[in-house]
Amino acid sequence: MKLLFKKKYLFLYNLFFLSFIFFHFQVKAELPNDIKHIISRGKLIVAVNSVDYPPFFYHNKDNKLEGYDIDIAHDIANQLGISVEFNQSANTFKGVVTLVENDKADLAISAISGTLS
């Protein structure tokens, strides 16, 4: 009985010690500069192709953007605590990527996928 009590005590002590170490000495990761810039601006600018491509992105009957990609963009902005703005000036999928390359958008989202070409 005495040995069982010591094991429980030792287990609780170790659990408390590890919890203390974890919560008090936890290292917080520094955000990359581009993410800091987006957060300080207060909005995430997302490049989307101007031509609808359901179910990824499309205009509903109220001319509001909807779709899987739009939901992902909103989720990212919500996690950062900022709003989202969509840049639909590109007429091609390559043009969507070019908007990001030319700093006209922070993120390209338009059913983008890697291709051999």
Rank of each mutant, 00 (worst) to 15 (best):
F22V: 02
I39F: 09
F93R: 14
I21M: 02
S89L: 12
V97G: 10
K8G: 13
V48N: 04
N49D: 12
K6F: 09
L80G: 05
L10E: 00
L4S: 08
L80Y: 04
T115N: 13
Q79E: 10
A47R: 02
S83M: 12
D71N: 06
G114V: 10
T92G: 09
K2N: 07
V51T: 11
L107R: 01
Y53Q: 03
E101S: 15
Y58G: 11
S40L: 12
L99Q: 09
E30C: 15
D34R: 10
I45T: 11
D103P: 12
Q88R: 15
F56N: 04
Q26S: 11
N60S: 01
F86N: 01
K104Q: 15
S83T: 05
V97H: 12
H59K: 08
I109T: 03
I82R: 04
Q79G: 03
H74N: 09
E30P: 05
F17Y: 00
A47T: 09
Y9T: 08
Q88P: 11
G114Y: 13
H37Q: 15
A29P: 07
I82W: 00
Q88C: 12
D52C: 01
P54M: 00
G81K: 03
K61A: 07
S89M: 14
G67L: 10
D34L: 12
P55A: 09
N60E: 06
Q79R: 15
K64P: 03
G114L: 07
N91M: 15
I70V: 04
Q26G: 15
H74T: 08
D52M: 00
T92L: 08
F57R: 01
L31T: 08
I112L: 03
N78R: 06
G114M: 13
H59I: 10
A111I: 01
N78Q: 05
D106I: 04
V51Y: 09
D52W: 07
K61S: 12
I45P: 00
N102M: 15
A77H: 05
V27H: 11
L99F: 10
N78E: 11
T98F: 13
D75K: 09
D103W: 00
L4F: 10
L99D: 03
N33H: 15
D71P: 00
L18I: 05
D106C: 00
Q26Y: 13
K7Q: 13
S113C: 10
R41L: 13
F56E: 10
N78K: 10
A90K: 10
F93S: 14
A29K: 14
N87Q: 13
L31E: 12
G95M: 03
G67Q: 00
H74D: 09
F5Y: 11
S110T: 03
V84W: 00
V96E: 09
I35M: 12
M1D: 06
G42V: 06
G67W: 02
T98E: 13
S113D: 14
P32V: 01
E101Q: 14
G95P: 14
S19R: 01
H37S: 15
N49F: 14
Y68D: 06
N87K: 10
F22A: 07
Y53R: 05
K61E: 12
P54W: 01
P55C: 13
A111P: 04
G114D: 11
V48C: 07
D62G: 00
E85D: 07
L116H: 08
Q26M: 11
